[in-house]
């Protein structure tokens, strides 16, 4: 996803001279093509994230379109108040790009994990939150961000995220992407766990279950219509994300389901528990440990729907 982002950004910068890329001294061996091509539009602010966001706001207030690139915690949490006051309250065209969604930086340890970012970014007025599920979705979201004038948070994986799509899907903010239709249960998945969600849907399909699978690259705005429809047409709804079960996609879907008066499906969140991940291991290892492998997701769903279907 990182490469898809960088390629898209280069294309955007070619077309739009106001585009500036800022980093807090991260992105070594990734951002060089941009730096070499657009030296005057590349800015490494050093290891100073609060200043980074303030500077981004100042540039945006001077008619620049700003992309800020870092590892998730450093571009969302370290500088949260600057994002709230300087970017969002002024409704500036600044895109925060967080690399390493979920457990992408598994072995790096909990300081580098991103399991709360969707929740906090989603809470900010004016902020749009996009979590593409693979490189193709990343390109699709970037096509929108290239022309958007809103504050946005783009949460991507790292390198080597598997391709879910064969070609770039259609993307509209606030719209889910239907990957497969079904009538028994609905699964809403966001971000880099999408591949596992799809594999889990396949496993469930093999047991005879009719599974509707929707990808949610747009967490805010959320596709309420798709959630309402799933509430009416299927008996159980599941959210899947590599993020805390508190406040992320699960929170957004839960709010929508709970406020919908025409149908009351069973609903459950599948994600990371409300805890810090202190185990050491790769993303794959940690997914296994926390029930986020495709097999574990499928088994969890099977257990939860006993007695419902």
């Amino acid at each position: 996803m990182r490469k898809a982002f960088c390629d898209s950004l280069l294309e955007t910068a070619e077309k739009d001279e106001s585009v500036i890329l800022i980093t807090n001294d991260l992105g070594f061996s990734v951002l060089e093509p941009f730096e070499q091509k657009f030296a005057k539009r590349f800015l490494n602010v050093g290891v100073a994230e609060q200043n980074m966001i303030g500077v981004a706001a100042g540039l945006a207030l001077s008619a620049k379109k700003v992309f800020v690139y870092s590892i998730v915690p450093f571009v969302t949490m370290r500088c949260f108040e600057q994002i709230r006051n300087d970017i969002c309250s002024a409704n500036l065209p600044v895109v925060l790009v967080g690399v390493g969604g979920g457990l992408s930086y598994g072995t790096a340890g909990l300081t580098h994990h991103s399991l709360n970012d969707i929740a906090i970014m989603r809470s900010l007025p004016n902020m749009e939150v996009f979590c593409p599920g693979d490189p193709a979705e990343t390109r699709a979201v970037m096509a929108y961000l290239a022309i958007s004038q809103n504050p946005a948070y783009l949460r991507i994986g790292k390198g080597n995220d598997p391709m879910v799509y064969e070609k770039t899907p259609d993307f509209t903010p606030g719209k889910a992407i239907l990957l497969q239709d079904g009538s028994d249960i609905s699964i809403f998945a966001t971000g880099n766990i999408l591949w596992n969600a799809r594999e889990a849907a396949k496993i469930l399909g093999q047991t005879g279950l009719s599974v509707r699978l929707l990808s949610m690259p747009s967490v805010k705005p959320i596709d309420e219509e798709a959630i309402h429809k799933a509430s009416r047409e299927t008996k159980a709804i599941f959210s899947i994300e590599e993020h805390s079960i508190i406040g992320g996609l699960g929170g957004a879907v839960a709010e929508t389901v709970a406020e919908y008066k025409d149908a009351k499906p069973f609903f459950a969140r599948i994600g990371f528990p409300d805890s810090f991940c202190k185990e050491v291991g790769s993303q794959e290892y940690l997914r296994q440990a926390y029930g986020l492998s495709a097999q574990a997701i499928a088994e969890r769903v099977q257990n939860l729907i006993k007695g419902i279907l």
Binding site: L43, Q50, G54, V55, A57, G58, L59, L61, S62, D86
Partner: peptide, 9 residues
């Protein structure tokens, strides 16, 4: 910081 961003622009 905001002022510095404006000044840089």
């Amino acid at each position: 910081s905001i002022g510095a961003g404006m000044a840089l622009a």
